[in-house]
Design a protein around this nucleic acid. Structure first.
Lengths: 188, 188
DNA sequence: CCCTTTCTTGACCTATCGGTCAAATAGCAC
DNA sequence: GTGCTATTTGACCGATAGGTCAAGAAAGGG
């Protein structure tokens, strides 16, 4: 019938996502996207329409990736400890300065456009995940105020992700995590 | 002897600081600075040399402003409560999306150039201020681990400043503050 | 093998970026 | 008022931004 694309669409979105995640939307140029994907400008526009539409697809891909890390079943306390250990371990890596694409996008777009709305929804989903973990723990320990501790958890996660962009201090980042975890008698 | 400038240098830096604070360094154009200061491009370059040098002067001005809010004497607990009340009250304002210039600059520049180093120093000074408050409270309540609670305070301040850019939720922001304040048996 | 359709290529577009500079202007000392 | 000097002005610079598009290339159905 006609010529078929020379690339895998989803693979391109993944590569673009990495660039956007590392550099942010505004600071990523079409040149950067061309270099990262191996596609020329015309192909990118022919396939995705615009930089903004491509970014939206990247956000959606990140959303899927992110949901894959959500709590589903098993020991909720163990989940929580692993969750924060991962944040700290990634955070202290010298070349890890990209943080979390959801939080980055909330900061970059909120109140500006549809990307901000999408990012906000994803932030809310992350929050709900932590609320679900807190709820699961509360079933064994009824004295927990789920809404309060959920806020402490998301705030700590946010702090670690953002501060670790510029402060590679394991003790410092661990302390932030432990401050939220103490409600559950947990530590990392 | 010769012609004198038509403007007050410090006033111009103040106006430029507001723009940088609101929009960030990269997202601020010379056009923005010209509009905000009322000076033409040539005058800005003639006076400050470059956009980067002007930003450095803005950082220094912010540093002075910031140090003016540090704890010096008086009731340290009262200081802490006022400190966080201010963060929350400013944070919930609909048009307050600029956060803190120090934190913004740490996130924008760290590891890139001299602006990042300057911002890092200013962040450390803010941290020291909170450590001093914690120390003053610890003199009355010796069971406090100053370094730990200092980390909780700076982390909470960071979270409130950043999250409030995109989440105008007083209950949420207050909870973040209270999570750090509970070490001192304080609440807002 | 050919024709249709789609994808690919890269030159080109306008707008804007930070920055420069020669000419015009205006303070101040005398 | 005159002359020196610094400031002001805005046109101009090359680089780069996101985006467009006509022409060339290639895949698939017949």
């Amino acid at each position: 019938m006609s010529r078929t694309p020379d690339f895998d669409r989803d693979e391109i979105i993944g590569k673009a996502m990495e660039v956007f995640w590392n550099k942010g939307y505004e600071n990523t140029s079409m040149r950067d996207l061309m270099d990262a994907t191996g596609l020329l400008k015309g192909s990118l526009y022919n396939t995705f329409g615009s930089k903004e539409k491509l970014f939206m697809l990247c956000l959606e891909k990140y959303s899927v990736y992110s949901r894959g890390l959500f709590y589903k079943k098993g020991d909720p306390k163990e989940y929580l400890v692993k969750f924060f250990k991962r944040l700290v371990d990634e955070g202290v890596k010298k070349d890890f300065t990209k943080g979390c694409l959801i939080m980055n996008s909330c900061l970059e777009f909120m109140g500006k456009n549809a990307l901000g709305e999408k990012a906000s929804d994803m932030f809310a989903a992350t929050e709900l995940n932590l609320a679900n973990v807190a709820k699961a723990i509360a079933e064994e320990n009824s004295s927990l105020e789920v809404d309060k501790v959920k806020t402490n958890l998301i705030s700590a996660a946010f702090s670690i992700r953002e501060i670790s962009k510029f402060r590679k201090d394991r003790k410092f980042l661990k302390q932030i995590a432990n401050n939220a975890l103490r409600d559950f008698d947990l530590m990392i």
